[in-house]
């Protein structure tokens, strides 16, 4: 495979032909997708007027549609998707298990359960802020509890997975219990939240998710190196000089924060965190954790799902339905093509 080395005064980078091509293609697809999503919708907004509207021109209704509805929604979708993809890829690499995405090992269940408790206790006074607070609190308590219970002479991978699994199941059952004990209207609200939707996002959500991403990205860049080595067998990794427990704790904390950011801004969209990592890895094929690739795939998936949900207005389907409808075939297609080439 072709490689180039980029040498700058203080840093050198190795670029592979395949990696660069994939990165370019993904970036183009995200840009095109975002522009298309801005254009599509029941109210026609011609591309030429966007600049004028952004500069303060256009009619009031055009201002409102572009600035208060479409733009925040698209930005939230991209940010939440990136967070889901990153968090999933991190957990899958650290725990060396393709099934270990945050929704499988129970961290999303904590956020969902917290949000449900908030919806019930606040009753009719429930606003986006209360639900958000509930989800944050739920996720935080679950994370502390799971990591605390799994900690014994350091943090072992399978202990963390299994304890997370048990806790996640119990919390999901608790959510079901709450759901069956409330009146029909609250239950309908809660079901919608549990599927995950990007309806009525505002700039508050955009700031939350993007500020989180911006704050965490330096840590992610730093973590990329040890994370790639955590895929090795445990003895080998510690033989290379990695301090496993502190590293695992950092990655777990970061992964949970990312997953929580995503759940708080877009609801627990299924399948994104699970699928983004494997799709990115099978595109790049360099044996790395592919964090950047996973975040791009995640962003693309959520954007596509939300746009699809927006286009089929008559049915009022939430975006959470489309993530698997779009992501599933992509993954199956990759599996089939790789079967033909004899890879994997």
């Amino acid at each position: 495979m072709t490689h180039w080395t980029l040498r700058l005064p203080f840093i050198s980078l190795r670029l592979s032909a395949r990696g660069s091509a994939v990165a370019l293609a993904l970036a183009l697809m995200i840009a095109a997708g975002a522009l298309l999503a801005l254009r599509l919708g029941t109210y026609p907004l011609v591309a030429g007027t966007w600049v004028a509207i952004l500069g303060g021109g256009g009619s009031d209704i055009e201002q409102m549609i572009l600035l208060d509805h479409r733009l925040p929604r698209i930005l939230t979708a991209l940010g939440a998707g990136a967070c889901f993809g990153l968090s999933g890829a991190m957990f899958q690499t650290m725990l060396r298990n393709p099934l270990a995405s945050p929704d499988v090992i129970g961290f999303n269940a904590g956020a969902s359960c917290g949000a449900l408790v908030a919806i019930i206790t606040a009753g009719s006074a429930a606003t986006g802020g209360t639900v958000l607070l509930g989800a944050l609190l739920g996720a935080f308590c679950t994370a502390v509890l799971v990591v605390g219970l799994a900690w014994r002479n350091g943090l072992q991978a399978e202990r963390l997975v299994l304890i997370g699994l048990g806790g996640g199941f119990a919390l999901a059952a608790l959510s079901d219990l709450l759901l069956s004990r409330t009146d029909a209207r609250t239950a309908a609200d809660m079901t919608k939240w549990l599927i995950g939707t990007l309806n009525a996002r505002d700039w508050q959500d955009v700031t939350l998710v993007w500020a989180g991403l911006a704050l965490l990205s330096p840590v992610l860049v730093w973590l990329h190196f040890p994370l790639a080595r955590l895929g090795l067998p445990e003895d080998l990794a510690s033989g290379l000089g990695l301090r496993l427990s502190p590293l695992r704790l950092t990655i777990t904390a970061l992964g949970i924060v990312l997953a929580t950011l995503a759940v708080c801004s877009a609801g627990p969209l299924p399948f994104v965190a699970f699928a983004a990592g494997p799709i990115a890895r099978s595109l790049l094929r360099n044996g790395q954790p592919a964090l950047l690739g996973a975040s791009a795939i995640g962003a693309l998936l959520v954007l596509a799902a939300d746009t699809a949900a927006r286009m089929i207005v008559t049915l009022h389907l939430p975006a959470g339905v489309f993530t698997a409808l779009i992501g599933g075939p992509v993954m199956i297609w990759l599996l089939v093509t790789q079967l033909r080439k004899g890879k994997l």
Partner: peptide, 21 residues
């Protein structure tokens, strides 16, 4: 594992969209 997870998610989503309709 990947095939099973992808296909299950796809079937569940198909089912859920039929239910929402």
């Amino acid at each position: 594992i990947l095939a099973g997870a992808a296909l299950s998610a796809l079937f569940l989503a198909l089912g859920r969209s039929l239910l929402l309709v």
